[in-house]
Nucleic acid binder design. Structure first.
Length: 683
DNA sequence: AGCACGCCGACT
DNA sequence: GTCGGCGTGCTC
């Protein structure tokens, strides 16, 4: 029995068997300084080894005795006085880890950026100054002028009826919100999607109520639009941003700013849903169906799911805003978790699907660029910029043998060959090797033909057809955020479309069939999202030509009824027991290990197992994973917690009984049981 | 991970 | 007797 305080800490170590709290004594010297959320150093396993940890709880020593009966070690030292892991964020990390059979520390690493010591010292000094100012005798300690005394009148939202907004959104509200499909100009003159104005107004409304807002966007393009809209409404010091291009210091400074007591607006990519913010009042995601919201690091949580869990923890409002409703959001609407919120009234884009025009000219329908599209591009160029959306970046990303039509393959690694520029020798997409003097492995031919046309080749083709027109290519490698109102042909890969001042004079959506040819459950919803987002960039009334695609998907776009389409798609998925009607976990391991793990799941209600089959290779160019098998576990949402708990137990068992590699063996064996929940590309 | 503990075969 | 091989288990 000891006296004093015991600290429960989370060890900064990814081993699954260490993913629980460890107790340490607090030495006298630290007793006054230690706080929940601080980073500390603790001795771990005899011999003076010291590792990092976070203080999660401080409890009276007398109460702590029941959990651990051995002799407690003392905390070694305090890394800094900044309490960087707030209780709310730790609780969120714990739940996300449990839901995905992962470690809390892996989530904490996403939530708390790497430390930058100078930035931290500066922030701590500023905090100390602010505190000193607060307690200075010149100020009346009772009055707090920053907090409004009366219930504030919350500002409305442009484009939405006040009564509907108030009913759906006020504290604890959860909504699937349809964005207004047009562009607006901010006070500073920048053109942004109306969605960005809506997000900014939601944030301003939240701040007016004295609470913080987290605003998530898929990529930096959207972030620029949102920041432009925010800066027109709010002072810069109330806005924090997180993005992938920041330096360690910038990111850590932005993070520390969120820890302060003042409510603020935090804008960022998928990891912003973990940002600490005092008195969280709103979490909003723009275009929640975008695959960039899926985290690529274990436990692979999607930002939408994190937002849902955090909403429950913090009692904030939750908004999923988009033009095309994600199937996941549709499910949440149908189970009553989200309310629908649509704009008051709006004019939808003027969409013309060429496959639905009943053109007698069959040749025109088969062409990649139908005659109507040529005409509208020509007319549009007389008025302003014309957007051409294509599926693939590069010049000719896939080439084939001209004589036997077999796809051209790399002589070294069998990867697919493509052409980067007109007349260039083809090169391998996987290993980069240049295939000079290429010979077809099937027929011995030497000539190549283009199979897939990229943005570069499209630009060349259109540039020839419209001599003198300015041609701009926007893709992942040439990011262009905006173009002027001057006539130009803007060729963009899906998702990379620049915003045109005042909107495009015409929008051509090419390659729809190619987009739909990809083998994935998600192709249709992705295409509808890409088309919808591009269509909104058109000027009011300007034609949006959808080339070569008809059917339900084209009419969903044409009638701007994406939610109805999502409802039908969700009904189909439910009938087939496909996600998101159910959840999935892919489990990969050596056969014996896999069988053991699956045996624990078979008896559960609402669970079925597909496979096992030989595990697919880990990535392009990777050798076939030797001997590993993969199974897909499908389960009802209600069974999720138990499935995750049992898979987690299997992971811990495998990790702690792992055999060492034979002596002298330099190679390290891959993790022997890999689990991934809700992989978006699994079907 | 990384280290101690411990249970078996071969050695001074 | 006891040295050290590595399989097993634990880390507050």
């Amino acid at each position: 029995m000891r006296s004093g305080v015991v600290a429960r800490v989370l060890i900064d170590n990814p081993l699954p068997q260490l993913d629980h709290l460890f107790d340490y004594g607090v030495p006298e010297a630290l007793a006054g300084a230690i706080r929940v959320g601080q980073r500390v150093k603790v001795p771990f396993r005899s011999g003076g080894r010291i590792i990092d940890a976070y203080v999660i709880e401080l409890v009276d020593a007398a109460e702590a005795d029941d959990s651990f009966s051995g002799t407690l070690s003392d905390i070694d030292s305090l890394v800094s006085t900044a309490a960087v892991l707030t209780p709310e964020v730790y609780e969120l990390a714990r739940r996300i880890a449990d839901r995905g059979a992962g470690s809390a520390i892996d989530v904490v690493r996403l939530a708390v950026p790497p430390r930058a010591v100078r930035a931290e010292k500066k922030w701590l000094a500023a905090q100390a100054d602010a505190e000193a100012a607060e307690s200075a005798p010149s100020r009346d300690p009772v009055a707090s002028p920053a907090v409004p005394s009366a219930e504030p009148a919350l500002p409305g939202l442009s484009g939405y009826t006040d009564a509907v907004v108030a009913g759906a959104l006020d504290p604890d509200g959860r909504v699937a919100m349809t964005a207004v499909p047009r562009l607006v100009q901010t006070a500073s003159g920048a053109w942004v999607g109306h969605w960005a104005l809506t997000m900014a107004e939601l944030a301003a409304r939240t701040l007016a109520g004295g609470r913080s807002a987290l605003l998530a966007v898929p990529d930096f393009r959207d972030q620029e639009q949102l920041l432009a809209a925010l800066h027109a409404l709010l002072p810069a010091e109330q806005i924090s941003r997180f993005d992938a291009r920041q330096t360690t210091t910038e990111r850590y400074s932005a993070f520390l700013a969120c820890l302060g007591p003042e409510p603020r607006v935090v804008v960022g990519n998928r990891s912003v849903v973990y940002a600490p913010a005092s008195a969280l009042g709103l979490i909003a995601l723009w275009d929640d169906g975008d695959p960039l919201y899926a985290e690529s690091l274990a436990p692979y949580a999607n930002a939408r799911d994190v937002a849902l869990i955090r909403q429950g923890l913090s009692g904030s409002a939750l908004v999923l805003l988009g033009h095309a409703r994600s199937i996941e959001a549709q499910r949440l609407v149908e189970i009553g978790w989200l309310h629908e919120l649509a704009p008051e009234r709006f004019s939808r884009p003027n969409i013309i699907a060429t496959a639905q025009q009943g053109q007698p000219d069959e040749h025109a329908q088969a062409a990649r660029i139908p005659s109507l599209a040529w005409r509208e591009a020509k007319d549009g160029l007389g008025r302003g910029p014309v957007l051409v959306q294509v599926a693939s970046p590069g010049y000719a990303p896939v080439v084939a043998c001209a004589s036997c039509r077999e796809a051209a393959r790399c002589a070294h690694c069998q990867g697919p060959l493509g052409q980067n520029a007109p007349g260039a020798a083809p090169s391998c997409r996987w290993c980069g090797a240049i295939a000079a003097n290429w010979t077809c492995g099937t027929c011995g031919g030497h000539a190549l033909r283009t199979v897939r046309i990229g943005a570069g080749r499209t630009a060349e083709e259109l540039g020839r057809a419209f001599p003198g027109a300015l041609v701009v290519v926007a893709d992942g490698e040439n990011p262009i955020l905006s173009v002027s109102a001057k006539p130009a042909l803007v060729i963009a890969t899906r998702g990379a479309e620049p915003v045109a001042a005042g909107g495009y004079a015409a929008v051509l959506l090419l390659d729809g069939e190619r987009m739909l040819g990809r083998e994935s459950l998600r192709v249709a919803e992705d295409a509808l999202r890409w088309w919808s987002n591009a269509a909104v960039l058109a000027a009011p009334g300007a034609p949006v030509i959808l080339a070569g695609v008809g059917g339900a998907l084209a009419s969903a776009l044409g009638t701007w009824q994406q939610a109805q389409w999502a409802a039908r798609e969700f009904a189909d998925r439910r009938a087939l027991r496909f996600p998101p009607a159910v959840r999935t976990a892919s489990v990969t391991a050596a056969p014996a290990v896999l069988d053991g793990a699956l045996a624990e799941l078979r008896e559960l209600d609402g669970v079925d197992i597909l496979g096992p089959v030989p595990a697919p290779p880990a990535g392009p160019g990777a050798a076939a994973s030797d001997g590993l098998m993969r199974a897909i576990v499908r389960f009802d949402y209600a069974a999720g917690a138990e499935v995750a708990r049992r898979l987690r137990a299997a992971i811990v068992a495998v990790a702690s009984s792992r055999r060492r590699p034979p002596k002298g063996g330099a190679f390290r064996p891959a993790p022997t049981l890999r689990v991934r929940f809700d992989d978006p590309e699994i079907f």
